[in-house]
Design a protein around this nucleic acid. Structure first.
Lengths: 234, 234
DNA sequence: CCATTTTTCTATAGGCCTATAGATGAAATC
DNA sequence: GATTTCATCTATAGGCCTATAGAAAAATGG
């Protein structure tokens, strides 16, 4: 199923001396567009990689699997990316960059801390809707990136944590939030709760908006007490 | 670095001559047979597998990696398990069985729903302390089990969800919990929050007990409001 | 329609990985 | 002490996987 032609014919060794790098899919914006429209299918290729990485994990996925999704030959992929590791980095980056930007916008925007926190929670789970595979890969496979790119991607991750924590601290100052919770642990709790959605969304019938609402109300008011106590956010 | 020429220190290790129950890790109950004390090192072998699987993921880990931890040859592992997949199943099983039992005991035991839920949260994160690698592997690698064993392991997982959900519903009936939260989504939120601990415990300075306390109070009372409102559990 | 440029293909080297076979030595048991 | 059992070793078959080289096909633009 995998290999099609029989192999065994030996050829004399030919040392390669070529060092030509296919220019990658990462920076696709060429300002001066005198160049041709090259690597047109890059987004499609990366989508396929995300899908396969999400399903089988980075090490469990083969480049053949990705090629199968696209109906091209395994070797053809290397026209689009120079290595499987680079493909992983591209996928991870797209998995985190968007919701980092959204989080930042919310944190620096207007609103009371409870409103901001509600926005953060909602915006954190919303990319799962249309970029679920990318988010999943970012969350579960970034640990397999080579050191340098892992640090690069990890930086965004920590920024998001900082944004949550800052809003929580702000709410404690304003008196909106209880002060006997640890901001760091609370941040990790909320992110854990939100990140888990990527792993089960699709098996549950609830919509992203619905999930967001439930999580926000749980976070702000907890389970105890009667329904409707306190002002609801949004 | 990998292979060595000298055989591992064979040191006339102190033999536990009277330790008959150490039957291998899979099916440890040998009812009557006065069999010899075979596969003595099984627990150690499985510990090493858990450690390596937790660190590199199932597909990223090689049997050579496991052997290196133990200072034995790669092929020697096959005296202890018949395949890498079976090793994964053993690790996953040990990662879930304990806290399933604990959860069940708490749910069927005495206490108000808030007390029970607090107990569930605490007991769910506590195995991370001394079985972190097993829990991690169960949470993140069980998807790579072959169908049959994945279903077997998944069954436990769903049981735990049911236990949480039942306690939440019970609390809604008694009036201890708000009734405008969805029990299913709340369950998934709490489990996501608790499971995430496995991924960052060890990088944070907080103890398991501390984390449990924070999570319980966040879950029951939420972030809003003044500190100390309402009865604290435990 | 020809020349370029872009995209995909065939073929395969070279490496690593799981799992099996059988040998070897050490321990336990008789 | 002889025999049996246990644990580990050496060696390797047999597969699969990434990545490279270079040819072929398809698209583009004059």
């Amino acid at each position: 199923m995998k290999s099609r032609s029989s192999s065994p014919v030996r050829a004399s060794a030919i040392r390669n001396s070529r060092r030509e790098l296919a220019k990658n899919a990462v920076a696709s914006d060429e300002p001066s567009s005198r160049k041709r429209n090259t690597h047109r299918r890059s987004p499609e290729i990366i989508d396929a990689a995300a899908r396969v990485f999400a399903e089988r994990g980075y090490h469990g996925a083969t480049t053949q699997d990705i090629a199968d999704v696209l109906n091209i030959r395994q070797a053809s992929l290397y026209y689009y990316f120079p290595s499987k590791e680079v493909a992983l980095e591209i996928v991870c980056t797209r998995g985190v960059e968007d919701f980092f930007k959204a989080a930042q916008a919310i944190a620096t925007g207007p609103g009371t801390p409870p409103e901001k926190l509600a926005g953060l929670i909602r915006s954190h789970i919303s990319p799962i809707l249309d970029r679920g595979d990318f988010v999943k890969v970012f969350l579960t496979q970034r640990q397999f990136l080579p050191n340098e790119s892992r640090r690069r991607v990890g930086k965004w991750s920590r920024q998001i944590e900082k944004i949550f924590e800052a809003v929580i601290r702000e709410g404690m100052k304003t008196g909106d939030f209880r002060t006997d919770q640890d901001p760091r642990l609370t941040t990790l709790a909320l992110l854990g709760m939100a990140n888990a959605v990527a792993s089960w969304y699709g098996n549950e019938k609830a919509s992203i908006e619905r999930i967001g609402g439930e999580f926000v109300s749980l976070t702000l008011h907890g389970l105890s007490g009667k329904a409707g106590r306190g002002a609801r956010v949004r």
